[in-house]
Design a protein around this nucleic acid. Structure first.
Lengths: 182, 182
DNA sequence: CCCGGATGAGACATCATCGTCTCATCCGGG
DNA sequence: CCCGGATGAGACGATGATGTCTCATCCGGG
């Protein structure tokens, strides 16, 4: 097959994140293929969404591996995780907004990753790097939210693509307030 | 009319944020009314979405007024804004994810508010309260993203409702990293 | 050159949803 | 008590999307 499955999934994720009610025809056009071809590779709309979920989860899992979140300073690990996630930020945004994954068993795969992210923040707290008054669960949600917001801002031209990782990490870790010299 | 329009809109926003492809029938059931009644109050799906946008924009505008974002310390103003926005966080999450408002003239109403938020962050930078290496545009996006993520986390039971405002403000302003004593 | 796989364009029946309608019921005010 | 407005339940046709199919074309390898 000469069809770039990854490319189709990217286009679909980008479109569906922006307009979740897009028809198969719109998705096909956004991906630059015909509706027939889209249907040849994804049995139907449900299958396409499922493929998006699976792919997003798999890619984010890869990012978690690559970032080696269990090693080194927790803050640095978070930075690495954000950097490694940047290429799949579009899929993460889709997964994060497409919260209907609270229905099927897709849940399991996602939970496995969620646990790893929470563990990272918990480790940071135990090591005295992160504040204790913000729960790991919330820090995890915030991470997803910021990555999604960043991806969306980049895709919309409000933030330069090269700044994405820095903007997200700096805000998540350092916050908006100016620091006193330390 | 004895129908609680606000209640219907809240339910619709909550459902559509989680499942944007929900049918009118699902929306009606989620709101606790019949499909007929839903249609009596909102001409159709488009009209309902438009009403959600208008209502969300109006309410967020009210929050901006109430927070008096032009007065006092910028950081405190941000805290007030987040606190005042908390009751309408569900609508903000909907507006933020429903990014198709880049089509119609709904844009104008929203842009007016967006400008005010950005102005707040810019003022904070000029007054030396906020860091200069994060653009007002990004801080604004991050604010929306965090409010949305917070609303979603609360609605899903991962964060206590009473902690919503504090979690969002603390993370946005202070970041995740533990501070040195100052 | 020829061929097979893949694609694009489009026709087609099917199906879910939409928007409108009617009718029975409920409920609060006069 | 009676009445009018509002609602719920459901039927109905219209409409748009879906999924499947066929056929012509394209393109790269043998």
């Amino acid at each position: 097959m000469s069809l770039d499955r990854e490319h189709v999934l990217r286009a679909a994720a980008a479109l569906l994140t922006r307009k979740a009610t897009a028809s198969m025809d719109e998705i096909a056009r956004a991906a630059g293929v015909s509706r027939a071809t889209l249907h040849r590779h994804f049995a139907g709309r449900d299958a396409l969404v499922r493929a998006l979920e699976d792919h997003g989860i798999a890619e984010f899992g890869r990012a978690l591996d690559e970032a080696r979140t269990e090693e080194g300073d927790a803050a640095e690990a978070v930075r690495r995780l954000i950097a490694c996630s940047e290429p799949v930020a579009g899929f993460l945004a889709f997964l994060f907004t497409e919260n209907q994954l609270y229905e099927a068993g897709v849940n399991e795969g996602w939970n496995r990753l969620d646990v790893r992210v929470q563990a990272l923040f918990r480790r940071g707290q135990e090591e005295g790097v992160f504040r204790l008054d913000l729960t790991p669960a919330w820090l995890t949600e915030a991470l997803y939210g910021l990555i999604g917001a960043g991806a969306w801002a980049v895709q919309d031209g409000r933030v330069a693509a090269k700044d994405h990782t820095r903007m997200v990490s700096e805000l998540l870790l350092g916050g908006a307030q100016r620091r006193m010299e330390r």
